[in-house]
Write a protein that binds this DNA or RNA. Structure first.
Length: 297
DNA sequence: GCCCCTCCACCAAGTCTTCT
DNA sequence: AGAAGACTTGGTGGAGGGGC
């Protein structure tokens, strides 16, 4: 099938005159007449019959008019150059599956960048359940997800590591067991702890590190988010463990101390469905998040 | 006389086939 | 595999014929 013939059909239908249709197509009258002949063969119908002032479409041509116009419109949309991406004029809402830690670290710098670069962009943050986050991304419920996703290896998702953070201990100001920003290992293990764990049963990297040293701590309180942890710590002698960037942001009424055990770093990644990763708005937002995640922001 | 169709000869570009 | 020639397709302008 020669799609150019549909363009000839469209011109003939519009002009009702082979010569004028030829002129609008920058073809000769002869070439347009040949094209009409091929159209007649293709559709097995005269399509346009002679008339004192040109040609008139047949019933079949009238029936074909709308579907052909629709087909050409679709092709033209496909071939049209993509509009350039302009954050300043972009008006849309990004839905982000995330948790309070990533937001606490990224939100201040991110919001400042958004207000400056893209005032028409809104953020809708929803809770990131590690179990269902990939399904949500697949279904288009979220534009992307922010979080650790340590155990997640899904080929159809593109992962960008935004930042990593070490863990520090937090305790109430004036806690008797902190000296020069440090705490003895046996004291740390003996004190009651508050643990942030979104999983059930709760688990923490600190427990694994203590276990490797033959020690065990008592979890006195478990909280579901990092942000609730300081409220428990500041009114008692229990101690807690937080990522350092979060601790310095939210634990203003707390004392921060070096952990007496080696605990691995926590990383925050951005998860996007792989087919969407080259989209201009995703490329732009990824760069925005990387700047927001830069140390010192 | 105007308009369209058909035929002719020719050209350019792309495709297919054959040969080395 | 690549070169070369044959073939196909779709374009051109010009001429001639038929319908209105």
């Amino acid at each position: 099938m020669d799609l150019n013939l549909l363009v000839v059909f469209e011109a003939l239908l519009r002009e009702r005159h082979v010569g004028r249709a030829a002129a609008t197509l920058s073809l000769s009258q002869s070439a347009t007449s040949h094209a009409l002949g091929r159209l007649r063969t293709m559709f097995d119908d005269p399509l346009f019959v002679r008339h004192p002032r040109g040609v008139e479409p047949t019933t079949r041509a009238r029936e074909l008019a709308e579907p052909i116009a629709d087909a050409l419109s679709r092709v033209r949309r496909i071939m049209a150059p993509q509009p350039t991406f302009e954050p300043a004029t972009l008006r849309r809402t990004f839905t982000v599956a995330t948790h309070d830690y990533a937001l606490a670290v990224l939100a201040p710098a991110l919001m400042a960048e958004l207000r400056a670069q893209a005032p028409g962009v809104d953020l809708r943050c929803v809770s990131a359940d590690p179990v269902t986050v990939v399904d949500g991304l697949d279904r288009g419920e979220f534009d992307f997800a922010l979080g650790g996703f340590v155990d997640l290896t899904v080929d159809r998702m593109a992962r960008t590591v935004l930042f990593s953070d070490r863990f520090v201990g937090v305790a109430r100001i004036g806690h008797p067991d902190i000296r020069d920003g440090r705490m003895q290992l046996d004291t740390f293990a003996a004190l009651p702890h508050v643990l942030m764990s979104a999983t059930n049963p709760p688990r923490g990297d600190v427990d694994q590190a203590l276990s490797a040293l033959g020690l065990k701590r008592r979890i006195a309180v478990t909280v579901p988010t990092f942000h609730t942890l300081p409220y428990v710590v500041e009114i008692s002698d229990v101690v807690g463990v937080l990522p350092e960037r979060l601790a310095r942001r939210v634990a203003r009424n707390l004392e921060i101390f070096e952990l007496p055990v080696e605990v691995g770093a926590v990383t925050c990644s951005m998860l996007v469905p792989a087919p969407l990763v080259q989209r201009p708005e995703i490329v732009w937002f990824t760069a925005l998040l990387r700047r927001a995640a830069a140390p010192g922001r």
